Simulated assay, not measured.
Amino acid sequence: MLDHVNNVHYLQWVQNAAQKHWNILSTPDLNCKYVWIVLRHEIDYLRAAKLDDKITISTRVEDIYGVKSERIVEIKKESKLIARAKTT
Rank of each mutant, 00 (worst) to 15 (best):
Y45R: 07
S69C: 15
T59S: 13
N6D: 07
D29V: 13
W13R: 08
T27Y: 08
K76I: 02
T88I: 12
L39C: 06
Q12H: 12
L51D: 05
E62Y: 11
N23D: 14
E70H: 11
A18C: 12
I72F: 06
W22P: 10
L25M: 13
L51P: 05
K68W: 05
K76N: 05
K33L: 13
Y34N: 10
L25V: 05
I37A: 12
V14W: 07
K50Q: 11
A49P: 03
D52N: 15
K80H: 03
L11P: 01
H41G: 00
V8R: 13
L25G: 06
D29K: 15
W13I: 00
T87V: 14
A17R: 13
S26W: 10
K77Y: 00
K80A: 00
V67W: 01
R84D: 00
A49M: 11
N16H: 15
Y10N: 02
N6R: 03
V38I: 09
W36I: 02
I64M: 10
N6T: 04
L30V: 07
S26H: 12
G66K: 13
S58K: 15
K68T: 10
I43K: 01
L11G: 04
T88L: 14
S26L: 10
I24E: 15
N23Q: 15
V35G: 14
V8G: 02
S69D: 04
I72S: 10
